[in-house]
Write a protein that binds this DNA or RNA. Sequence first.
RNA 1: GACCCGGUAGCUCAGCUGGCAGAGCAACUGACUUUUAAUCAGUAGGUCGUGGGUUCGAGCCCCACCCGGGUCACCA
Length: 615
Amino acid sequence: MPTGALPAQESEHGHEDAPCGALSAGNGRARGRQEGTPGRDERYRFREPDPVLRLSALYDGQRPSDGVEDHGRPWRHGRRTRSPHRSVPEAVGSHSGQLMGETTTEPREELSQVLRHRREKLEALRAKGVEPFAYNFHRSADAAGAVATFEGAEKAGSLDEKDHGERVEVGGRLVGWRDMGRSIFAHLEDASGRIQLYFKKNILGEDDFETLALLDVSDWIGVEGPTFRTRTGEVTVQVESWTLLAKSLRPLPFGKAETDPETGERIIHSGFADQETRYRQRYADLAVHPDVREVFRLRSRVISSLRRFLDEEGFLEVETPVLQPLYGGASAKPFVTRHNALDQTMYLRIADELYLKRLIVGGLDRVYEISKDFRNEGLSRVHSPEFTMLEWYQAFSDYEDQMDLCERMILYVMDEVMGTRQVTFGSHQLTIEAPFRRIGLVSALSEALGRDVHEMSEDDLRAEAERRNVADLDGAGPGKLIDKLFGELVEPGLIEPTFVIDHPKELSPLAKPHREDPRLTERFELYMGGAEVFNAFSELNDPIDQRERFETQVALREAGDDEAQQIDEDYIRALEYGMPPTGGVGMGVDRFVMMLLDQPTIRDVILFPMLRNED
RNA sequence: GACCCGGUAGCUCAGCUGGCAGAGCAACUGACUUUUAAUCAGUAGGUCGUGGGUUCGAGCCCCACCCGGGUCACCA
């Protein structure tokens, strides 16, 4: 599990799990595996003699009589039939067939025993008149608030004669359960943190206490009662009444947590380690891993902070098309789709750039957009086909100004969200301070090669690249060769924030020529933690030059480069009306978040990363 | 795409040179009224990714395939 050093979080919630109540749903084997029966079909019948007497007893006489086939759905009796909840919630999925005793073509479910027990408890609860899926629950505090209030009262000496704090109503998910016989300790977790619950038989009464045995870790419950501090020092709710809010029919894969007696640190033994399953079932990953929840809370705060920064700088947030008749603004392959009514091929955008610059032409002189872009390419640690891009364009600025703006923005976000300028990138500990290092792409490469890149012919460059086993050189011109060599030789070392500036013209068809060296463009990429996070130019505003650049791209495309750009006539028309000098920046928001939160892969900062179809 | 590693109980994993498929946790039964990885006693739980092959015998060896992770390479 990701264990990035996340700053400034409240508590380290660990995970605990524990066996739940003593009472239970009975002996599955006896029912499901009777001699000679093929298993599934028999599993849910209630027949005599049924050894599951404790469970049966809880039905309070509503238990279906025996030996009749349609008792596969005992909860269908009584008022349940007309309940808006109808039969089984969606989570049941393919198991309903099983449970109904029907033959089904569904593959046999892996969890049948565990799922069965929970379903039996659900029935037992309904038989006792306990509604397992509540409509609402009023909370007087969240878990952290209840603890804080108690501690405040304790400090102020305002506890009552029994050392109880005020009564609270808290609600959350059961994440731990320790049954001690006539008393039970449990932990309840909500978005704020966790709080211990204490259930005591002679407070709740015999019957209510018995019913607790039908609860499980993962259930949502609400409780009410005074707070107190246990002998071991933990602030705890002494439960006087409880309400089941939602029965969990599928146990969450909680791991175990222990507290190191030496350091007091919580050591977490994850019960949910399979990366793929964690991405597919992000709900369970989030439910079980508080630090994953924290990553996404911080991601959200980073994005808010970026937005606030740009708003304060006078930028206007805009929205431009995701579905485009012509894609452009980057070198990438698009997703293709079709609009039926217009009978027209559409592309999912690969960049926002060309639309945003049209807005500069129109006089909206500082604009930005935070959006999903789509590139039909492979997946990797730093590439997702669907990713979040922030682009902004500012008239009356050039790339020098934008480097300054980037520095300010990064420090603004760090101060506001992280509260520190210290950051960890893998094994590197860094302090981020402006100004960042600036290196010329060509001069840095020249230094790495030990010879002046400008003096090298295309053949020299190719020979160097081949000597260093740089892959995929087909059709690469000198610009691309320089870029490849740079990627090989210089890029991996760019851990601390570094502006790499002044790229070869061939690589940057939308950037202005360098004012001092026509072979280059005024462009920078900002690298952090070894990955490119920002990309920016002094934007090309000469429509005649722009057309020539597009034509060069078309030639590259015809030569087989399917990532080369196309001529966008409408964009050229816009430039012909006149675009003021403009600096523009694109930022990979996911990567930025990765860097700030020290997350090793882009999937760890995307809630639902793209995966191959399940089956 | 190429290379490396992996897929065994609900989860995390072990399984030697081919010889009866295992552990911990979770589940289930029982005990326990201030525990917190609760503890103690007991019970159940398996299509060893899929399909072929070799063998008296395959989780293990061979072939093919599926799925995942990592590394490399390109766009943020």
